[in-house]
Amino acid sequence: MMKNLLEFMGVEPDRIHFSWISSAESTKFVEVVNKITAKVKAIGPNQRFVKQAAKVA
C-alpha cells in the first residue's frame, strides 16, 4: 500500500523493494541484491523526495 501511494505521487516503482529471504537463503540474498542494483542503475539517481540541503547565504 505504501508503494502504491508513492507511485501515486509520482515516485518510480523501482525505488522501493520488498522481499522475503530466510536466514539460510544466502544465494537468494545475493541474487536479490544484484537484481535490485541492476534495476536501480537502470532508473538512475533519485531526484524525487530528496530534501535539498538548505542553501546558506
Partner: peptide
C-alpha cells in the same frame, strides 16, 4: 524510515524480512 532514507538522498530503499 523509507521516506527518511529517500529524503537523505538514497537512490532506493529495500525492505527484506
Amino acid at each position: 524510515f523509507a521516506l527518511a532514507a529517500l529524503r537523505e538522498g538514497a537512490d532506493a530503499v529495500w525492505v527484506s524480512g
